[in-house]
């Protein structure tokens, strides 16, 4: 029974594993162009295991941001997982703390989505969660390493061109969410404007500038939208405009 749950978890997680393939390969490539060794890059995937945070770390390493600021930025980017695991908690079968603490390591945006959207009435078993987490994690780590390995064997002009890959990836992540969603567009635009202002006035070092821009935009936009939300007529207008 327990085995069956694990296997069906692996099946449910295999679509995540396929989705991770290009993102992990690209991470390995980028880590290579950022100057990380194969071991260093793979270790980040093994121990940190968070796509967005790992990409951000690469871009901050490239900008020579100090390690403490990188860790703080990592925390800020990962705060959202508090939300996800808190809401997931209600759907999960009760289990010893050590079991939950173990599969908690495998909760990402994607595994969360697969677990949280399960339509079954029964609670999700720990074995199922382990199944989903294992295949997704395995895919992430293995393809990160392969990506780095491939990147090491490319000609010079391609490596130059690949210096854009990190930012192309950020754009590729942002645009689909931003399409038809003005809030997402505003969030990214305001954060970009705040960062540009801080950058060109030299007010703060880069790592802190990104932190301030991110939190500033997130808070500002939330205040604006929650004020609007209090007036039902405005929400309607918003929907019509979209």
């Amino acid at each position: 029974m327990k085995n069956n749950q694990f296997i069906s978890g692996v099946k449910a997680g295999s679509s995540i594993a396929i989705g991770y393939f290009p993102v992990a390969i690209a991470f390995g490539l980028l880590a290579k162009t950022t100057g990380l060794s194969l071991i260093e890059a793979t270790a980040m995937s093994i121990f940190v295991y968070a796509g967005a945070a790992q990409y951000m770390a690469l871009s901050l390493i490239k900008l020579n941001v100090d390690p403490v600021t990188i860790v703080i930025n990592t925390f800020v980017v990962n705060i959202r997982h508090f939300l996800m695991t808190a809401s997931l908690n209600e759907k999960m079968q009760s289990a010893p703390k050590i079991v939950k603490a173990t599969y908690a390591f495998g909760i990402t945006d994607e595994t969360f989505s697969v677990l949280a959207t399960r339509k079954e009435d029964d609670k999700i078993t720990s074995a199922f969660a382990f199944g989903v987490a294992s295949i997704a994690y395995g895919s992430w780590v293995i393809f990160s390493a392969i990506g780095h390995f491939v990147g090491a064997n490319l000609p010079e002009f391609l490596q130059t061109a690949m210096s854009i890959a990190l930012y192309a990836m950020f754009i590729g992540l942002l645009v689909p969410s931003a399409k038809g969603n003005r809030k997402v567009v505003m969030l990214a635009a305001i954060a970009a404007v705040i960062h540009c202002i801080i950058y060109f006035t030299g007010l703060l070092p880069t790592g802190w500038a990104i932190l301030v821009a991110t939190l500033g935009s997130s808070i500002l936009i939330e205040i604006i939208y929650s004020r609007r939300g209090k007036n039902p007529a405005d929400i309607y207008k918003e929907q019509e405009a979209d």
Partner: peptide, 18 residues
Amino acid sequence: GVLGNIPYAVLGALIFPA
């Protein structure tokens, strides 16, 4: 709400002006 906004805001700040 603010926590849910962070992933999109951070992308904007990471892309521009770098």
